[in-house]
């Protein structure tokens, strides 16, 4: 589904990605983890074509994404900061994204699911952070795309909404979709992720299942295992 080869990206003198090779085959939830500044968001944005790599290639469904924008038709993306044009109403924003994508969507169902009905006629500028994030989630999940990328999806969500989000992710996963998720909430990752991709200093430091991670670090607790991995030698 996604093939990344020798990906390099520098921002000024700061080398963020230095030779990432990654292949993700369809199906399952992949958590992209790593310390702050390890290049998680850059990697995601590279896949989305928002960041243009200095070197290397990214192929989505076997096609290079360079100078190509149509492949994004098959990707749903939940950005980290949900900040929308303040003057639009929720309803208008949803309609606009539908209009831009020209794909069938399940917006109504999702709106009901996240109790967003009362907010449909409100302007986005007046919404709370949590509500905005819910709108953000609706926008992401309303299309039926095989690849879904979530950047910090749990931000600002109340426990009930968080539960619904998890439910939603699992439902979609069971349809055979692929998820790329970054999160700081290790509990969420532990619960959801099938595989962990750990980035360190611009490279893939570890890739494998939760069990493999814990086995390698010798920790019994997932959170501790994550914290410990950076200090565990690669060949251990």
């Amino acid at each position: 589904m996604i093939l990344i080869e020798n990906l390099h990206k520098k921002f000024g003198k700061n080398e963020v990605l230095s030779g990432v090779d990654l292949e993700i085959k369809g199906g399952g939830i992949f958590a992209i983890l790593g310390p702050n500044g390890s290049g998680k968001t850059t990697l995601i944005k590279s896949i989305l074509g928002m960041v243009i790599p200095n070197k290397g290639a990214i192929l989505v469904d076997g096609k290079s994404i360079r100078k190509n924008w149509k492949y994004r038709q098959h990707i749903d993306y939940l950005p980290q900061i949900a900040n929308f044009p303040g003057n639009l109403r929720v309803k208008e924003l949803i309609r606009m994204i539908q209009d831009l994508r020209q794909k069938p969507s399940e917006a109504d169902q999702l709106i009901g699911f996240f109790d967003l009905k009362p907010f449909l006629d409100k302007k986005l500028g007046t919404l709370s952070g949590g509500t905005k994030q819910k709108v953000n989630i609706v926008l992401t999940f309303m299309f039926d795309s095989p690849l879904i990328i979530l950047d910090e999806p749990t931000n600002g969500l109340d426990p009930a909404s968080l539960l619904r989000l998890k439910e939603l992710i699992l439902v979609e996963k069971n349809k055979g979709k692929t998820f790329l998720i970054t999160s700081h909430i290790m509990q969420f990752v532990e619960e959801m992720a099938d595989e962990i991709v750990y980035l360190l200093e611009g490279k893939i430091y570890f890739r494998g299942t939760k069990e493999a991670l814990m086995a390698r670090t010798g920790q019994s607790d997932f959170e501790h295992a994550i914290a410990a991995i950076a200090t565990t030698p690669a060949d251990a």
């Binding site: 989305l48 074509g49 928002m50 924008w69 149509k70 492949y71 994004r72 038709q73 990707i75 993306y77 950005p79 900061i81 949900a82 900040n83 929308f84 044009p85 994204i97 831009l100 994508r101 926008l139």
Partner: peptide
């Protein structure tokens, strides 16, 4: 001000 909006659009299948 429309930075985030722009990012939202960038993730959509649209030409830059």
């Amino acid at each position: 001000n429309s930075k985030e909006f722009t990012e939202l659009l960038l993730a959509q299948p649209l030409k830059r």
